[in-house]
Design a binder for these strands. Structure first.
Lengths: 223, 223
DNA sequence: ACCTGAACACCGTTCAAGT
DNA sequence: ACCTGAACACCGTTCAAGT
């Protein structure tokens, strides 16, 4: 009893995994992946770098915890429809919006495919498949196809954020890439040269959803 | 004329971007991403770390060059069919086999979506779409859907290779993950819990192709 | 023009020492 | 039990100095 009392009487701003993760998210959101160092995190928490290791095993665990925090909150709020197809679309759009708002989450999802956050997403894709009429045997392939697609987009967004740094916007970056595509030899890269214009003025969210719909159409054909 | 003569008379093992990239690929293939440092590379080339910077701008350029070297060779050999669907499948399987053999290529493809190697892959997916009857407007979405799916798988393979290190095999790793999935609360993760068995004994290449086929079926429905 | 290798500016992580 | 902060073992990159 004495020890528990002693424990609860510690100063209010004592370190905890939750406080560390919250501070990490703030740093990641404002400065990107590059900004999160143990030194920066310790400075923000007004402590030493080593103190963090008492609550968190290493940087991997810290990033996984930060990612799960954001994904868990978002997936819990994802719209639930009576139509399984709509439920899957809503889950996908939820992940898209999270990645768009926190590109570092995208990097983490792609880099650590077996972390808890990914399981939540996989559950969001796989859960409605039975109601969609997909036979049991095909469900794993269908859910991972959606997951791979989303992971690929996540990686792409993370790369864009890394290139942007702080100065350019995503649209400016894509316009830049599109210009380089247009300058390619049309004989060697006919397709890329031809679709370069679309890269510059497409809507990211609509394009993302178009890909989800392609896969969903393929999935519905499996029934 | 004197200068050009002088240039060609340098010792046969003079540094060049090609030699540097070739050495980098050897290190990456035998030791993984982690093993490629400028110090290790310089040691293998029997030179100083700074010398490499005369031929290569930085580590990004080095990795992009190594990746393009491997992807260009592989894509050039990809089977070309009269049936556009088969051509796309062959391109996808070519990329799969490359990633399977060189997981670090997977990491690089996912991390740098605007590097030359990715353009070759995008060309392989987009080129046959016209013959497949996909309207011009939809081709960009279709090709990038395939690309995102492949990038997601690439990231997943790269992560597996990172976790494996050197001791465990990929199948052992997946069996391990599957065991953790089985141990999950079936109430919270019903789907993941249910498909855990499939993760352990599925065929990676077949599963990959199943996802490609889902997307292709969706694409054919766009016609 | 090309190469050398020490030095710089950073990392993540550890650990003896404190409270 | 929890925190401090210097120290360690690495990185990528730079640059004065050589040939």
């Amino acid at each position: 009893m004495t020890t528990t009392t002693q424990r609860s009487e510690r100063r209010a701003d004592a370190l905890s995994k939750e406080r560390i993760v919250a501070a990490a998210i703030q740093i990641l959101d404002s400065g990107g992946e590059k900004a999160l160092t143990f030194r920066a995190l310790a400075a923000r928490l007004a402590t030493g770098a080593g103190a963090i290791y008492w609550h968190v095993a290493d940087k991997n665990e810290l990033l996984a915890a930060a990612t799960d925090d954001i994904i868990a909150r978002a997936m819990a709020e994802a719209a639930d429809s009576e139509q399984p197809r709509e439920t899957i679309r809503a889950a996908a759009l939820t992940v898209f919006d999270v990645i768009d708002a926190h590109p570092w989450v995208g990097a983490q999802l792609a880099e650590e495919p077996w972390q808890p956050a990914v399981l939540r997403i996989l559950e969001g894709f796989g859960g409605p498949l039975t109601a969609l009429g997909v036979p049991e045997k095909a469900q794993f392939d269908c859910a991972t196809a959606l997951l791979n697609y989303v992971s690929g987009l996540a990686a792409q967004y993370a790369a864009a954020a890394r290139l942007q740094g702080r100065e350019t916007s995503r649209t400016a970056l894509l316009a830049n890439v599109a210009a380089r595509w247009t300058a390619l030899d049309p004989a060697e890269y006919p397709f890329v040269h031809r679709v370069a214009a679309r890269l510059a003025d497409h809507d990211d969210r609509e394009q993302f959803l178009a890909g989800i719909d392609l896969i969903l159409t393929g999935i519905e054909a499996v029934r």
